[in-house]
């Protein structure tokens, strides 16, 4: 009896035994020096028994209630939009760096966009994989998948825009630089609002897409629809400015600038669509 107590005492204080149960079970040979072989055999047999019982208990758990609850796609969806939003934020900085002809930091920012896009893609793939047909959701599965695609489109456009200035390293003469920078931050604001709206998804879900929370989200959507309308006006203003400058610029540069403006407008447009998609969730 006394030796038994002693044995437990040693086990407790032995650094290798203070780890998790699994570690305890793995250790086999070092005990030899402490205990007689009979005690050693006894403790091993006990460990094996404990391990058997544990694994049985875990197997029992595959039961209907445990398996009934799937993983809600809402938080991954918000995570995806968050990653996409950081693409847009880095893009704005990248455009500013290109206007200042700071190609070194522009390069670093392009790297940042790539890695954010990669994060987003991983979440996207994971979300799609979990949205199997047998999962029953409070919103239509197709609507959710559509939202993922729209968000993905924003990220993809960011990647495209990021390549343009770096590829060509063209200059932005006169007022064109500040105008494009302003346009870019307007786009950023639209996508920020989209993220804020999508972050309301869990609260919307909590109230079952009804009542005060639904009204609140509708207001948010209205707000940034207005924002997008403003940014559309911005698009035509810049295009007008560029038209004036066309003759004084390298024609290929001009094409690149038009392309840049178009893609930025696309980002704002997709961000608005992502927000509107939430209306689909509320209207059933």
């Amino acid at each position: 009896m006394c030796s038994m107590k002693n044995h437990q005492f040693q086990r407790k204080n032995h650094p290798r035994f203070s780890a998790s149960i699994c570690d305890k079970l793995v250790i086999k040979s070092t005990n030899k020096f402490h205990y007689s072989s009979l005690q050693h055999w006894f403790s091993r047999a006990r460990n094996v028994l404990i391990r058997r019982i544990l694994s049985q208990a875990i197997k029992i758990v595959t039961n209907p209630i445990g398996a009934l609850f799937g993983r809600s796609p809402i938080r991954p969806l918000q995570g995806h939009m968050g990653a996409v939003q950081s693409c847009v934020a880095s893009l704005q900085k990248l455009v500013e760096a290109s206007i200042a002809a700071d190609w070194q930091s522009a390069d670093a920012l392009a790297q940042e966009i790539n890695s954010s896009k990669q994060d987003a893609d991983e979440i996207k793939r994971d979300t799609r994989m979990h949205l199997t047909r047998s999962v029953f959701l409070p919103v239509a599965r197709t609507d959710l998948l559509e939202l993922v695609s729209i968000q993905d489109q924003i990220g993809y456009n960011c990647k495209q825009v990021a390549q343009l200035p770096l590829l060509r390293k063209s200059s932005f003469p006169g007022d064109l630089g500040p105008a494009i920078a302003g346009f870019c931050s307007a786009t950023l604001k639209v996508s920020e609002s989209a993220l804020a709206t999508i972050n309301e998804l869990d609260e919307l879900f909590e109230t079952s897409f009804k009542g005060r929370e639904a009204g609140f989200v509708e207001k948010l959507i209205d707000q940034f629809q207005e924002m997008e309308a403003q940014s559309e006006e911005g698009t035509s203003a810049i295009q007008g400015q560029l038209l004036q400058l066309e003759d004084s610029l390298n024609p290929v540069d001009v094409i690149f600038h038009y392309k840049l403006i178009d893609l930025l407008a696309d980002i704002a447009h997709s961000a608005r669509k992502a927000g509107s998609q939430l209306l689909m969730f509320m209207a059933r």
């Binding site: 039961n63 209630i65 009934l68 993983r71 809600s72 979990h130 999962v135 029953f136 409070p138 897409f209």
Partner: peptide
């Protein structure tokens, strides 16, 4: 257990639960 599964599905039908595995 099966009665409880039915009840949870009922809440799900009222748009109450994030994701339910109908495979169960």
């Amino acid at each position: 257990t099966h009665t409880l599964v039915g009840a949870v599905l009922g809440v799900g039908l009222a748009r109450g639960i994030g994701a339910l595995n109908l495979g169960v």
